[in-house]
Computed example of a mutant assay.
Amino acid sequence: MIARIKTFAPPTNRSLAPATADRLALLAGSHEDQLALCDRLEAIANGLPYGVDRSICAHAGKMLGPHLRNLHEREEAAVFAWTEEKLGDDPSVLSTLGLLKYEHCEDECFAEELAEVLGRLATADATVNPEAAGYMLRGFFTNLRRHVRFEQQCFRNLTADRSGC
């Protein structure tokens, strides 16, 4: 059974400016997409070594990197840049945004490596070690879920006491 993380919902605080709510809604949608991706990857890992659906692995391998990059680019352009503009005079905000961007880069690099393994699983490459592939899949989706939780908490904290954002 796949454990679901409570997703980040934009605050219902009416004192937040509409632009803030819109950006947080975009972030929440991005998080939903990333968590759904984690669920699909977990299903692949759970099927190893004998229940591998080669077509699912092929699709996951092809879409993983571009999909994750697209989600991160949208977050950074719509949410991070806006947050930096509004709250950039706070060094802790800039530091947090820098850390989140770095984690995006790490996730995308890991996704590239994982995409290659998924492609090899899709072609029934006998040199792929199923235990190593499962370990890699689990490492990726566990880290991505942790990143989503951290990002959710960061933006909850950033918007909690800022009614004028």
Rank of each mutant, 00 (worst) to 15 (best):
G119H: 06
V93R: 07
A43M: 09
L37T: 08
A111F: 11
A111Y: 13
H67C: 02
E108D: 14
D33R: 10
A45H: 14
D39F: 07
D53L: 03
L87H: 11
C109K: 15
A122Y: 13
R23D: 14
L68N: 04
H104W: 01
G47A: 11
Y135N: 15
L68S: 04
V117Q: 12
R145W: 01
G65L: 15
F155P: 12
G61T: 06
E116F: 08
T123Q: 12
R54H: 15
P66K: 13
G47F: 04
L68W: 07
T142F: 10
A111Q: 14
L137K: 04
A124C: 08
V93M: 10
L114D: 06
G119S: 08
R146M: 07
Y102D: 14
V117D: 13
E32F: 02
E108W: 07
H147K: 05
E106K: 12
S95H: 08
K62S: 11
E73K: 05
K101L: 03
H31I: 00
S55Y: 02
V79Q: 10
P49H: 00
R40H: 13
E85S: 15
L24P: 02
E112D: 15
R40A: 11
G119A: 05
F80C: 02
R74G: 06
N129A: 12
G98E: 04
E42N: 15
D125P: 01
G29W: 02
T127M: 02
D90Q: 13
A60D: 07
S92N: 08
A77C: 01
Y50V: 09
C154G: 03
C109A: 15
G61Y: 02
G51Y: 09
R40F: 07
V52D: 01
S95K: 05
R74Q: 12
A60N: 00
G51I: 11
K62P: 00
H59K: 12
F80L: 06
Y50A: 12
D89A: 12
G47H: 00
E85K: 15
G119L: 13
V52M: 03
M136D: 04
E131D: 14
L27Y: 06
F140C: 03
R146V: 04
L87D: 08
T123C: 02
R120W: 09
A126K: 08
R146I: 01
